[in-house]
Design a binder for these strands. Structure first.
Length: 576
RNA sequence: GAUUCAGUAGCUCAGUCGGUAGAGCACAUCCCUUUUAAGGAUGGGGUCCUGGGUUCGAUUCCCAGCUGGAUCACCA
């Protein structure tokens, strides 16, 4: 990379790097640096009476410096937090040679550099627990200036808040925004908490294919890819349901998977093209049992993360203490609209939609019409955890028919904060019925529903061998994490949310010789490049040489280059 | 995909009713030499997102595009 593209601060840091090397210091040492303490544990456990932590060694990133002559204070941030360090010239340079302090520490180190320190802990006059440094080691020189975020009484100053910057350069976000690190730590704890519960019950964590020849288990548009050796299309999974149920057929009593699923659909603050779902299937259970188990999961996670089931989410308080309300979908519709749609046919449902002002299209079947009414009129009311149960069969092609309510299935969705968090069934295990449901999906597909399911004959074959009565549940881990960490957007709970790639990078540069060949004096080459003409080809496309001459003269003047002014004729000669 | 707001220094942001731009922090030099977001002084740093139009002249006005946010539509 040429220095032309570097900011002044970056150039200064590269020069400092060279100075460090000249002093015989390796700015990127290979050796292990063995630490014996962390910032947080020192701040929590140090006491002057105990006189503990008198030989500590810790490593981290330099986050601020206050230099005052022969002594300095700085902040060191490790994986646990920040602690102040005190660096005194004669301590780190006991002999005559004061280079390490005067030159290396004061001039050549920068905010963002990673260092290791050895010393003892004490309390300053200002009452702050501080590491008195006796030995300082550079572990990694940082070449790019870090945004400097200041903090006072928990309030941030100049905090990096630009979402684009934060998502595209998450590593910087994590460095300067400690609360972001905490969100992701909680995400991991949440998954561990659930895994702990499942393992304690003897359920088996499994892995199933991400590349699937038939994308099944949900209604969604898949990503498609191609396998060269087999010369077949493969789909990135939209769900893993059908594979997990095959494993139940195979004889496992309980299986679960934390799975990345992929759906080729819109992105917004609830949706990312790849997202994480936990799916679990347990033999000999039904959806009633699964509701109890789901309550247990949510309660455990809340307690493990917060020690309480009262969770603040944005401007609301969510009470996650079971039991949660269980309400049949049609009852809820009746409750909010006053209309009992049970047993209505498609035509009648269309009339209801018209009456309620809900848009519908000819492609929408009975199931989708009911779904539209529900989404429009009911979802927004489901702030506190609520199980909506007994969905119409038309939207539930993998669910067992309700044991007593014709036309409905044994399915529930758990809503928290008006969003679907979990989806579960008494699983359909009648292979003949399953085949018929798949055929119905095919009919919907022919009618124009591009999300209708494919027929998975192998799955039907598995059911023909016999699957025990089973209940399965899928839970959106990203959404649950949003609720548990009080984040408004899915992008805030994914380390690297999908972003649109940025446009063209600067194109290849023509070598200096090519510019010289055109008769361009050497001193004008950098200004020309700076104005965006990186190649001679780009110069040839310039239509108004006079304008280029003008721009260059302005650049000359503004940057005080002291070059003689260019005439339009001179510039024209270069170009022709 | 639609509507809308935004994009200016490394970061957070002002500003220019059209004449090539400022602050704080960061950076550099000097003074000070145990500080707590900030000791003092001086200084450097910018394709004002990109392209086109209008204009003698555009970072500013107009149009198009790019990227992001919000809302809506589809979906989990």
């Amino acid at each position: 990379m040429s220095e032309l593209n570097l900011s002044e601060q970056e150039i200064i840091r590269r020069q400092a790097l060279e100075e460090i090397r000249k002093l015989g210091i390796d700015p990127y040492p290979a050796a292990e640096y063995r630490t014996n303490a962390y910032a947080k544990e020192i701040l929590e456990n140090y006491s002057p009476e105990k006189n503990n932590y008198q030989e500590v060694c810790l490593a981290g990133r330099l986050m601020s410096r206050r230099i005052m002559g022969s002594a300095s204070f700085a902040e060191l941030m490790d994986s646990t937090g920040k602690i102040q360090i005190y660096v005194k010239r004669d301590e780190i340079c006991p002999g005559e040679d004061k280079t390490l302090y005067n030159t290396v520490f004061k001039k050549l180190l920068d905010i963002g550099d990673i260092i290791g320190v050895k010393g003892f802990v004490f309390i300053t006059q200002m009452g702050e627990i501080t590491v008195h440094v006796k030995e300082l080691t550079l572990l990694c020189k940082s070449l790019r200036p870090l945004p400097v975020v200041k903090e006072k009484d928990g309030k941030l100053y100049d905090a990096v808040t630009d979402p684009e910057f934060r998502y595209r350069q998450r590593y910087v976000d994590l460095i300067v925004n400690p609360h972001v690190r905490e969100v992701f730590r909680k995400r991991t704890l949440l998954i561990q908490s659930m895994r702990e519960l499942f393992n304690s019950r003897g359920y088996l964590e499994v892995e199933t294919p991400i590349l699937q020849p038939i994308p099944g288990g949900a209604n969604a548009r898949p990503f498609i890819t191609h396998h060269n050796a087999l010369d077949i299309p493969l789909y990135l999974r939209i769900a893993n349901e059908l594979y997990l149920k095959r494993l139940i057929v195979g004889g496992y009593e309980g299986v679960y998977e934390f799975a990345k699923d992929f759906r080729n659909e819109g992105m917004d603050r609830m949706h990312n093209p790849e997202f994480t779902v936990m799916e679990i299937y347990i033999a000999y259970k039904d959806y009633n049992w699964m509701m109890n188990f789901t309550e247990e999961i949510i309660e455990k996670v809340a307690l493990d993360l917060h020690g309480t089931t009262e969770i603040v989410y944005q401007d609301r308080v969510l009470n996650l203490k079971p039991p949660y309300r269980r309400v049949p979908m049609l009852d809820l519709i009746k409750e909010t609209t006053g209309i009992d749609i049970y047993g209505m046919d498609e035509a009648e449902l269309r009339k209801v939609c018209d009456k309620l002002g809900i848009e519908h299209t000819p492609a929408m079947g009975k199931g989708k019409l009911i779904d539209a009414i529900f989404s429009e009129k009911c979802e927004q009311l489901l702030v506190q955890p609520t199980f909506v149960i007994d969905y119409p069969v038309e939207t539930s092609p993998l669910t067992k028919m309700h044991r007593s309510k014709p036309g409905l299935t044994e399915r529930f969705e758990l809503f928290i904060n008006c969003k679907e968090i979990a989806n579960a069934y008494s699983e359909l295990n009648d292979p003949v019925d399953q085949m018929e449901r798949f055929r119905e999906q095919l009919r919907l597909s022919e009618k124009g529903d591009d999300e209708a399911m494919f027929i998975d004959y192998d799955f039907v074959r598995a059911l023909e061998y016999g699957m025990p009565p089973t209940s399965g549940m899928g839970m959106g881990i990203d959404r649950l994490t949003m609720i548990m960490t009080n984040q408004p957007s899915i992008q805030d709970v994914l380390f690297f949310p999908q972003m649109k790639p940025l446009g063209q990078k600067p194109k290849a540069e023509s070598p200096k010789e090519d510019f010289l060949k055109l008769g361009i004096p050497e001193e004008w080459i950098d200004p020309i490049k700076k104005l965006g003409y990186h190649t001679v080809a780009m110069l040839r496309e310039v239509e108004k040489p006079s304008r280029l001459a003008n721009d260059l003269n302005i650049y000359n003047k503004k940057n005080k280059l002291g070059l003689a002014g260019l005439s339009p004729e001179t510039v024209e000669k270069w170009l022709r």
